[in-house]
Design a protein around this nucleic acid. Structure first.
Length: 206
DNA sequence: CGTTCGATGCACT
DNA sequence: GTGCATCGAACGT
C-alpha cells in the first residue's frame, strides 16, 4: 500500500507527524532502497521565514504552491540534494523535509554510495559506516538512496518514489527547533522518533 | 564540549 | 556576487 495523494492534502504538521514511522521507497531501475522515516521538518507558508516561499513565489519554489503529494528536491550548498514532500492544497506553499531514515532495503548499495562520496577524504573511523549512519541527515539519505534532482516533482503516490505506512511502531515523537536554519528557529517544527539511533544532530531524545 | 572551514551548484539580487 | 533547510574533519577551550 502506498500513501495516497490526499494524505498530503492536509495541515503540514499532521502530515509530518504521520510520516514518522512510514517507509520511503526509491526504485531506481532494478535497484530498490528504502528506510523508515525517523526525522522530519515542516516548512509552512510565506509567513515561515525558513520556508523557500518566505519571499513569495519564484520559479524555484513554485512547486511548493502546487499540488500536494509531489516531491520537491533541490540542491543545497552545491552538494546535497534535499527531498521534501509538498503538502497542503494548491496555493498554500508548504512541505515536509525528510531528514533521516532507518535503512531497510538496499543497505549494501547505500553503503557503497556513501563511501564513494567520501572517497579520497580521510575519515576518523577509517571509512566505517554503521547501519544507523547510512541515512542520518538529509544530505546523507539522498546520497544513500540515489535521490537527485531527477527525482524532483515526482508523484509520491507513484511507482518510483513513494511512501508506505506502518514501517515501525512509533512509541514517542519528540518536537524541537529546526536545524541548520538561521531564521524561524523559534518554531518546534522538527519532529523525530525519540531515542532512535538514526536521528541526526545529537538530539535523539525529547 | 565548541567553532571554523572547504567542497560545491544554483537561484536570486 | 551572495547565500544557503549540509557534512565531516580539524582545531581551540
Amino acid at each position: 500500500m502506498t500513501l495516497p495523494r490526499d494524505f498530503y492534502d492536509r495541515p503540514t504538521l499532521d502530515v509530518a507527524r504521520e510520516l514518522l514511522g512510514a517507509v520511503l521507497v526509491h526504485r531506481h531501475g532494478s535497484v530498490v532502497t528504502s528506510g523508515v522515516i525517523v526525522e522530519v521538518e515542516a516548512y509552512i507558508g510565506e509567513s515561515d521565514p525558513a520556508c523557500h516561499a518566505a519571499r513569495g513565489r519564484t520559479t524555484r519554489n513554485a512547486p511548493l504552491y502546487g499540488a500536494p503529494g509531489l516531491s520537491y528536491v533541490y540542491l543545497n550548498y552545491g552538494i546535497h540534494s534535499l527531498v521534501n514532500a509538498v503538502t497542503e492544497s494548491e496555493g498554500h506553499p508548504a512541505a515536509v523535509l525528510i531528514r533521516a531514515l532507518a535503512p531497510l532495503d538496499g543497505m549494501a548499495i547505500m553503503r557503497r554510495r556513501r563511501l564513494r562520496e567520501m572517497k579520497g577524504r580521510r575519515t576518523a573511523s577509517g571509512g566505517q559506516l554503521d547501519d544507523a549512519s547510512l541515512c542520518r541527515g538529509p544530505g546523507n539519505l539522498t546520497m544513500a538512496m540515489g535521490i537527485t534532482l531527477e527525482e524532483h516533482q515526482l508523484d509520491l503516490s507513484g511507482v518510483r518514489l513513494f511512501v508506505e505506512p506502518g514501517g515501525m511502531p512509533v512509541r514517542e515523537i519528540a518536537w524541537g527547533p529546526r536545524i541548520g536554519i538561521r531564521v524561524g528557529t523559534e518554531q518546534p517544527w522538527r519532529g523525530w522518533i525519540a531515542g532512535h539511533p538514526a536521528v541526526s544532530a545529537h538530539q535523539r531524545s525529547g
